[in-house]
């Protein structure tokens, strides 16, 4: 089971600010730490803390270029998340199909009227 690692990833994503950071990074590709901080109305130390949590969970990686620090999402980290999302989506989509079929079978006159 990929349990512990995936739990860490989802625990990191549980925080709305961290989830928003990841979503903005997904949109932007890569941002400097300053750019990330500028997009959120919270202190730089708080952003720095959130980035540390995301990095420890393996969700983001850092790159240093001269005095600038950049962060971006590690695509491999999201594979497990996407896998969970696609499995859940498949389950619910199929379940709603079957629920609809069963409801229709219970009320055979409904569609005809």
């Amino acid at each position: 089971m990929p349990g512990a690692e995936l739990d860490g990833v989802f625990a990191a994503l549980a925080d709305p600010t961290r989830r928003a950071i990841v979503e903005r990074l997904l949109d932007a590709g890569e941002l400097s730490v300053g750019d990330v901080a500028a997009r959120f109305a919270i202190s730089t130390p708080a952003i720095s803390w959130h980035l540390q949590v995301l990095e420890r969970a393996g969700l983001i990686e850092r790159r240093v270029e001269r005095q600038w620090r950049f962060v971006r999402v590690r695509q491999d980290a999201l594979v497990a998340v996407e896998d969970w999302v696609s499995r859940s989506r498949r389950h619910w989509s199929g379940a709603l199909d079957r629920l609809e079929a069963l409801a229709a079978a219970q009320t055979p006159d409904r569609r005809k009227s």
């Binding site: 989830r19 949109d27 709603l96 409801a103 009320t107």
Partner: peptide, 27 residues
Amino acid sequence: MSKAAVDEVRLERLIPAPPEQLFALWV
């Protein structure tokens, strides 16, 4: 890119049956 959060699934369906019937099928 969709606005759904990266770690959740949202699905919606129009089904020609009343809420009462669908709720009953669930519980």
